[in-house]
Design a protein around this nucleic acid. Sequence first.
DNA 1: CCTTGCACCGACCGATCGTTCGGTAGCAGT
DNA 2: ACTGCTACCGAACGATCGGTCGGTGCAAGG
Lengths: 252, 252
Amino acid sequence: MDNFPRPPEQDADHTLRADPTAPDEPAARGRGPFDVPAGLGDAPASIGRMPTVKRDTYTPDSLLSVAVRVFNERGYDGTSMEHLSKAAGISKSSIYHHVRGKEELLRRAISRALDSLFAVLDEPAAGEGRAVARLEHVTRRTVEVLMAELPYVTLLLRVRGNTDTEVWAMGRRREFDQRVAELVKQAAADGDLRADVDARLATRLLFGMINSVAEWYRPDRAVSGHGPEGGDTSAEVAEAVVRTAFAGLRTH
Amino acid sequence: MDNFPRPPEQDADHTLRADPTAPDEPAARGRGPFDVPAGLGDAPASIGRMPTVKRDTYTPDSLLSVAVRVFNERGYDGTSMEHLSKAAGISKSSIYHHVRGKEELLRRAISRALDSLFAVLDEPAAGEGRAVARLEHVTRRTVEVLMAELPYVTLLLRVRGNTDTEVWAMGRRREFDQRVAELVKQAAADGDLRADVDARLATRLLFGMINSVAEWYRPDRAVSGHGPEGGDTSAEVAEAVVRTAFAGLRTH
DNA sequence: CCTTGCACCGACCGATCGTTCGGTAGCAGT
DNA sequence: ACTGCTACCGAACGATCGGTCGGTGCAAGG
């Protein structure tokens, strides 16, 4: 029905593995003093202490980036703390040194996504000019933010509402949606959008197109040069979404 | 970011409920001989036995319809056999009288979705005429099937690849996708689709729009009369998707 | 009346869940 | 040398997981 890359190479069975000591990812690790953890390199600019060299241990944020990757591969409910510890290369109990628990990881990730998305609505171009132009701007920028914060936004889009955190996330997401829906309604009132499709339905279809980018875009494949080989840059995809959504697939 | 109706009214906490005997849904049930199970009424035409009256106990299919509803509310991984037994109004062990286990329920549901979707590609109008017309037909019919088989297709769309069944489902779904992608490529070669958006990307955005219907459509709200109050019928939504995807949101 | 078989049950299984606890090695500051 | 702190560990917690087992009540067939 849709596109997606690899299934997460399969744990064979996901219950009762043959050799329970076999590591999932970052091979045995002697646990010597200076083993660099698995998923560093995307941590925020290290503050204080030794400024550049050595960045060794986990911070809540660097651990988060590992956790979010696993959440997206297996689903939040399908991810155990054991999975996270294997992926991070530290023991299960060590995770609790950095964060309160599994749900805090989810909350941090979703917060980050929501903050980035709401920031789009505060950009000047989202509040000035004709409604249809503001709507196009928000569409373009939302796609760009989605791609820049891909794993965090992806997690947000998949929330089901099973915990308090998830219910809160769904509520804030609905807020964002309604802000955009108002733009659509205004643009329709201006006569800039086709009248034969209801504004609420149009909003939903627009978001359907935008959000679907999270289903197939993989940043490692995007190395600028577009075309059938390399992936596309963020701006190129955003432009294609705007063109397709507003002008349609068909030639005229 | 998108639309959706209610979060599933919250179990408060989802671990360690205050009163472990409190039922989740179909109140206590004295377990008398003629308690009618929770989710009947959408079972296939009852074969054999007493033809009309009495339809009491579960069949694999009627149990499936209950299970799929819960799967969609809580997510597959977030649903325990205990959740299913509460929703069905029978004990956990009784479920195993009808199906082999949790994963068989998933497999049956996904099979049903895939069969319905692939059937669209075998319709005459999907193979005759100009590629762009065939593509429009497949788009329209896929939306209609998605709405008719909503819970089953929704489940398919959310599969993550954690088990063998899920990997198989993702593979078959990719097949469907590629069949449609070929139609897009052909229509682009005919000059009927805009040349400034790559065919692969166009396919993905088209599916993004189609599949997003599963995120917000709720059949109980669709009582024919369209407009701002009642929902829309299947054919009306499908028509709107085709119009929006092929002609775009903007007026010309 | 007796047997058969279906739909269902409570009790229980070992495994795994998220989380807690009591450590310990190594470094910085004094 | 001692203290305090950070980042980590293994072992274990009670709860819950998907699934199995040996029944039980009852309608239908003989």
